[in-house]
Design a binder for these strands. Structure first.
Length: 268
DNA sequence: TATGTATGGTAAG
DNA sequence: TTACCCTACATAA
């Protein structure tokens, strides 16, 4: 159930424990047996996180592509359960199991590149280029809230970072993307980048600025430390937070701090 | 114990 | 636009 920073944490952990070693790869569940056989006993040379996607490069030249989706997660194995899609183990003590992923496939380099090429800039990566995001969003008429969640525009942004970054920038999610100014875009990109980096450092998502927090980080409940995401009232002004369904996902906004565009009001 | 919800994305229609 | 993937967790009963 990750947003982008989680995948970078996983990549970092797997790099440390599995990187550079010949691994025993299997699919106890049976669903990816052939794929596992193709890389079994080869060396895991490189692990890359791009947005919510993970890429594992093997000495065979092939690439394992993983996307966790809502349900997917890694756990330290061997877990014994019948639902392990993918297992990577060293000869000694490390065993990492993958359960319930949306994607778990072994690809040729070209195909893996094609997956990565569809993704927009991930602010947690050195190669992230904001201009790509700007170019992909500036002509779109749908709400900026929808565009922010589009992984081909911003890679790594999920529902929490969407709500919180738009809040911080004072932009309503229903503002058509093509009405977002260059200055607003720059602020939005910088905000998303800052939030992702902070979450990477904290290993959790606390978007409220440190000097606004009412109590120490460690004492914050799971849902605290957010301005509007899953909040009853706006953190700053107390206005009841509006929640509505946007393309199948809950969207949150404070319509005092984030003035709705004129067109949105006509529909209400 | 049962039920509902979720930080996501794809493929089918 | 809908169905699906098919887990973990919180809350209700």
């Amino acid at each position: 159930m990750p947003e982008g920073h989680t995948l970078h944490l996983i990549a970092r952990d797997h790099r440390r424990r599995l990187g550079g070693r010949a691994l025993r790869v299997s699919s106890p569940q049976g669903r990816a047996v052939d794929a596992a056989r193709r890389v079994d006993r080869s060396v895991l040379e490189r692990i890359d996180a791009h947005g919510k996607h993970l890429f594992y490069e093997w000495s065979t030249g092939e690439v394992l592509h993983v996307h966790l989706g809502i349900f997917g997660h890694f756990l330290d194995g061997p877990s014994g359960g019948p639902n392990v899609r993918w297992r990577m183990a060293t000869d000694d003590d490390v065993c990492i199991d993958l359960v319930g992923p949306t994607a778990c496939e072994v690809l040729k380099p070209d195909a893996a590149d094609a997956v990565a090429a569809r993704l927009g800039p991930d602010p947690l990566r050195r190669d992230a280029d904001p201009e790509v995001a700007w170019a992909r969003l500036r002509n779109r008429r749908v709400g900026i809230g929808q565009v922010l969640m589009d992984q081909s525009v911003f890679a790594g942004v999920g529902n929490i970072f969407r709500a919180e970054s738009l809040y911080v920038c004072g932009i309503h999610p229903e503002r058509p993307a093509n009405t977002v100014t260059r200055d607003e875009f720059d602020a939005l990109y910088a905000t998303v980048a800052r939030m992702l980096k902070q979450a990477l450092k904290d290993k959790r998502i606390v978007t409220v600025a440190r000097d606004e927090l009412p109590k120490p980080l460690k004492q914050l409940d799971r849902l605290e430390g957010r301005y509007v995401y899953r909040q009853e009232n706006c953190f700053r002004c107390g206005t009841p937070v509006r929640r509505w369904d946007l393309a199948g996902r809950w969207c949150y906004a404070c319509e005092t701090c984030q003035p709705p565009p004129p067109t949105a009001e006509l529909w209400r």
